[in-house]
Design a protein around this nucleic acid. Structure first.
Lengths: 150, 150
DNA sequence: ATAAATGCAAATCGTTTGCAACGGA
DNA sequence: TCCGTTGCAAACGATTTGCATTTAT
């Protein structure tokens, strides 16, 4: 089963349109970015790229992340004390997060009810909502068990 | 109508318990913090304090903000590219935010329906939620009008 | 008197940028 | 060849910290 180079096409097309180049560094960064399913931050990505033997400087990682955001392949999730967290964007599906305080893992979820409720709330306040972020913090199943054992 | 020194009592009691001191710098910072109704960041607070003629260094502002968070008088709202945003905490009332992209103003709101829906969603995922943050971005009434005029 | 708090300036940390060398088109 | 891109190191902005001095208790 060969890897699908959809994102590569998207990215290189995006670059070409702006008269920019699809270099091997950008390719390597894109690849690592897309191979991750969860969330990531620039530093971690950089380290993984180095481990994988590819060459790309921190500067290029940061610069490429900006580009990937602009072309919509990844999105900024939030800023933490350790840096900015990004995630691969899956089409146009919006989703929210449950974030485990214990192990840092993230559960993605989507609720139509939630979306509609928010529209109602905006209407009530005369606010024209365009996007939102909901983050629920707490304990995932695993970490709940760990707590009980203690 | 005299100012109510409730927070001063809370803070000085908190400090005393930990063998720490209620200095004039801390008092000045607390006061400015509590006089603000909306959101604020350390730098803005620092500048306002200086304007008001009180003396307190940036370092003290940061150190005091930490203390105020620990004792629960203020809370961290979010991190932005320009710094961390805090807000005075009003008792234990939880609320969420609508944030205007146009003018930066924030609307606070609370919805019981929303709280209950989140509990449901957590239950569905086997997640034990403890806190959450919901931020809806868009345009406030004023900025909607401005957009139309253009 | 004593230990804690202050202000300053230097240090950190994540991120950005200027610039000379490099490399796709 | 002609620009865009790279890596490096220096520059940045927000926040923290070491230290000598000041101050609350």
């Amino acid at each position: 089963m060969r890897e699908k180079p959809v994102q590569k096409q998207v990215f290189s097309r995006f670059l070409k349109e702006r008269g920019q180049r699809f270099t091997k560094e950008r390719s390597a960064i894109l690849e690592k970015t897309m191979s991750r399913n969860g969330h990531f931050d620039p530093e971690t990505l950089y380290i993984e790229i180095r481990k994988a033997g590819a060459k790309a400087s921190r500067a290029s990682v940061y610069r490429t992340i900006s580009l990937l955001c602009e072309c919509g392949l990844i999105e900024q999730v939030r800023k933490t004390e350790h840096g900015t967290v990004y995630e691969r964007s899956f089409g146009h599906e919006h989703h929210d997060h449950m974030l485990c305080i214990g192990c840092g893992s993230a559960i993605e979820f989507y609720s139509d009810k939630l979306e509609r409720l928010q529209e109602d709330l905006c209407r009530q306040q005369g606010f024209q909502g365009t996007t939102h972020t909901l983050e629920i913090r707490g304990y995932c199943r695993k970490c709940q068990k760990k707590k009980k054992q203690t």
